[in-house]
């Protein structure tokens, strides 16, 4: 089976996020008020051939932790999404 998995990598809570902070400061100037906080991150989408959705998720989570994120400063979460 083919499974689509999205991995999101974000900075861990407590780690300064200058990119998110810059976007947050820019929003009022564009008329977007009330945005309390912005965290910037990265998104990856994988199509994974696997026996089960669990296997696809485990595989994605593993590669996310090994390669896509730096565990010193980032968290990675994998979730299944509807295929294209």
């Amino acid at each position: 089976m083919n499974y689509s998995v999205v991995v999101e990598v974000t900075l861990r809570v407590g780690i300064a996020d200058p990119e998110g902070a810059t976007i947050e400061r820019a929003l009022p100037a564009l008329g977007f008020n009330g945005v309390r906080s912005v965290r910037a991150g990265k998104m990856f989408r994988f199509d994974i051939e696997a026996e089960s959705s669990d296997e696809a998720l485990t595989s994605a989570q593993s590669l996310a932790e090994r390669l896509l994120s730096n565990p010193v400063i980032e968290d990675a979460t994998a979730r299944l999404v509807e295929g294209r």
């Binding site: 780690i15 300064a16 200058p18 990119e19 810059t22 730096n70 010193v72 400063i73």
Partner: peptide, 17 residues
């Protein structure tokens, strides 16, 4: 070296980007 785990910590984008 930090990514390889040979040194502790990590290097982030500069303050002020």
């Amino acid at each position: 070296l930090t990514e390889a785990g040979l040194l502790p910590g990590a290097l982030q984008k500069n303050r002020g980007l």
